[in-house]
Simulated scan of single mutants.
Amino acid sequence: MDRLGSLNTFVQAAELRNFTSAGRRLGISSSAVGKTIARLEERLGVRLFVRSTRSVTLTAEGQAFLERCRRIFAEIEAAEAEMAQSNGVPAGRLRVSMPLTGMLLTPAISAFAVAHPNIELDIDFSDRLVDIVEEGFDVVLRTGAAADSTLMTRVLGTYSYVIVASPDYLARAGTPTEPEGLLSHACLHHRWSTTGKLEGWRLKRDGAYLDLALPTTLICSTIEPLIEMAERGLGFTAMPVFAVRRQLDEGRLVSVLDRYLDDVGTFRMMWPAGRQLLPRVRAFVNFMGEHLFAEIRQG
């Protein structure tokens, strides 16, 4: 078991190319990762990593050893899958990548954790485009179109957008009745961390999108601060409706220009094709398919 533990430490360090990140994932210190790797290299009699102050890279021997270790852990996962299928209880560690907006959907995730106590959830919230196979994710949840044809995909549902501001801001600055009215207001924007571009406010009139140079009063790479700042009266922001459902219901935010917004986003689950779907992955995909879209609609 000690050997399996050291092999797992090596795999995490090799895939992340960073001892600190590997330690964080494993719940140990970076120095503990380094000592484990050093003992492993001594036992094998080869150097697995080339380490510098800025980077960690695999040697040729390390790359070959990584491929062998991946096959070993794949066999262990397959054995676990067979046992899980035999007793009908999904179990084991499930690595999931979710967009930052996924943090607003924690009720569905929490419900899954309660329904499947034998599954160990390891969730990475990030808007970056992850390599599902290379980084060892079992499944990812993403918005937008599916860009990788090598992945299996399940659409969970669609959601609409709203432009919102606080009642205090509207009382102070006025309520625009046409999209062009936003040009004289404070506008709070979301910037995609993956591209560095601002997320557009897709306003339409007579079926055509409007090209408006909206003020960039404030820009943020995550949406939660934008929602709070809109609540505090700093200006307008455009959000998925599920992200601000509670604030709208409680009157802390008010939507405007609804008739000029008919754009929709898509939530989808993706997982690697061509491999046996582990019971814990199937359980997560099916559960989210049944519950997540309801969560989006209800907020």
Results as ranks from 00 to 15, higher is better:
N8Y: 06
F10P: 00
Q12Y: 02
A13N: 01
L16D: 03
G23R: 02
R24C: 08
S29Q: 06
A32Q: 04
E42V: 11
G45A: 04
F49P: 01
V50A: 09
S55F: 04
A60R: 12
L66T: 02
E67V: 11
E67Y: 03
R68F: 12
I72L: 10
I72V: 15
A79S: 10
G88H: 12
G92I: 11
S97R: 14
P99G: 13
L105T: 03
P107L: 11
P107F: 09
I109D: 08
A113C: 13
A113E: 15
V114C: 13
P117D: 15
L121P: 06
D124P: 00
E134Y: 00
E134L: 03
G136F: 07
F137E: 05
A147P: 07
D148V: 04
T153P: 06
T158D: 11
S160A: 15
V162A: 13
I163K: 02
A165K: 01
S166Y: 02
P167N: 14
R172K: 14
A173G: 09
T175G: 07
T175A: 13
P176I: 12
T177E: 13
P179L: 08
E180F: 12
G181V: 04
L182N: 04
H185Y: 08
W192I: 11
L203A: 10
K204C: 13
R205D: 09
R205Y: 05
L214D: 08
S221H: 05
T222S: 11
E224Q: 13
E224P: 00
E224D: 12
L226F: 06
E228M: 09
E231K: 10
R245A: 09
D249E: 14
G251R: 01
R252G: 02
D258N: 14
D262T: 12
G265C: 05
P272N: 10
L277C: 08
P279W: 07
P279E: 14
R280N: 09
R282Y: 02
M288Y: 01
M288I: 07
H291I: 12
F293V: 11
A294T: 08
E295Y: 02
I296K: 00
I296W: 00
